[in-house]
């Protein structure tokens, strides 16, 4: 059996320029739809190689923030910087995202990997090598020819992560990737995320799960009402939150923050 961490290194060896630690930053980021402000005044810096988790109650704007950072939606105000420069199409290619529910093309497992790699301009023997490595990493070698959508939820999410990683991103966004999985599948997915990090991929993970946040996070961004309520090292924030809203949420209490309801 191949070692996943070393496989990740083979992906990243393809990356032409070994740039200085990638950083994604947001400055005064805001997002509104039809007059409803859903994200406001977000400033953040994510350091290369770090594992960031985003936490907060439903509707706090976690998934929305992820999509803004990934460039899937355009902010209403503020800006996103990639290595200090505005996020552009080329920079987007250095990022990948795994969704809560894996989106699989109506094709075989292998063809799903093939599609992503072709879009990323990987051709010839390099593509075959990466496909083989991705299958090995996701432990899906035996299912390579199976229709992707007949796989179990856990297998599909593993494939989604392997597909994202095969494109050799610097940064991987994960939007509650294990929320609908059983403990065994969750464990397998977490192992994959760990492998990615070990290979130097910066990860940004949205989760509701405290234990998962501790396992997969170095830093935490705690959101409430479309704002960042608190940031800091994950252990420190989870054990001793400074903000009232984070403390309430972590203790399982209902908390009504002034201004929070208008954003719901």
């Amino acid at each position: 059996m191949l070692d996943s961490a070393s496989l990740m290194k083979t992906f990243r060896a393809d990356v032409a320029e070994k740039v200085a630690p990638s950083v994604i930053s947001a400055r005064g980021l805001g997002f509104a739809v039809e007059g409803r402000v859903l994200i406001r005044d977000v400033d953040l810096d994510i350091k290369a190689g770090r594992r960031t988790v985003i936490m907060g109650s439903n509707g706090a704007g976690k998934s929305l923030l992820l999509r803004l950072l990934h460039g899937l939606i355009a902010p209403s105000s503020g800006e996103i910087l990639w290595n200090g420069r505005p996020l552009d199409k080329a920079a987007r290619r250095r990022q990948a995202m795994v969704f809560q529910r894996p989106v699989m093309l109506r094709r075989s497992v292998l063809a799903n990997l093939d599609f992503a790699l072709r879009v990323h301009g990987v051709h010839g023997p390099a593509r075959r090598d990466r496909e083989r490595a991705a299958l090995a990493m996701a432990r899906l070698e035996d299912l390579a020819a199976s229709p992707a959508r007949t796989l179990s939820g856990g297998e599909q999410q593993r494939l989604a992560i392997a597909r994202a990683l095969a494109c050799a991103p610097d940064l991987l966004f994960l939007d509650e990737p294990t929320v609908s999985l059983d403990p065994a599948s969750t464990h397998a997915v977490e192992m994959l995320i760990g492998d990615a990090h070990a290979a130097g991929v910066t990860t940004v993970l949205v989760t509701h799960d405290r234990a998962q946040a501790l396992r997969l996070g170095d830093d935490v961004i705690f959101m409430a009402g479309g704002r960042i309520a608190e940031t800091g090292p994950v252990e420190k924030v989870l054990q001793n939150p400074q903000s009232e809203v984070a403390r309430a949420w972590l203790e399982g209490r209902l908390h009504f923050e002034p201004g929070a309801s208008e954003t719901k």
Binding site: H70, G71, L72, K89, A96, F99, V103, R106, A116, V119
Partner: peptide, 25 residues
């Protein structure tokens, strides 16, 4: 509607999108 975010995330261009949608449908 199902694919749009995944396509955007992968950075799929317009022609590839049409091709992939037609093939998958």
């Amino acid at each position: 509607r199902e694919y749009v975010e995944q396509f955007a995330s992968l950075g799929v261009g317009p022609l590839d999108r049409v091709g992939a949608l037609l093939w998958d449908a």
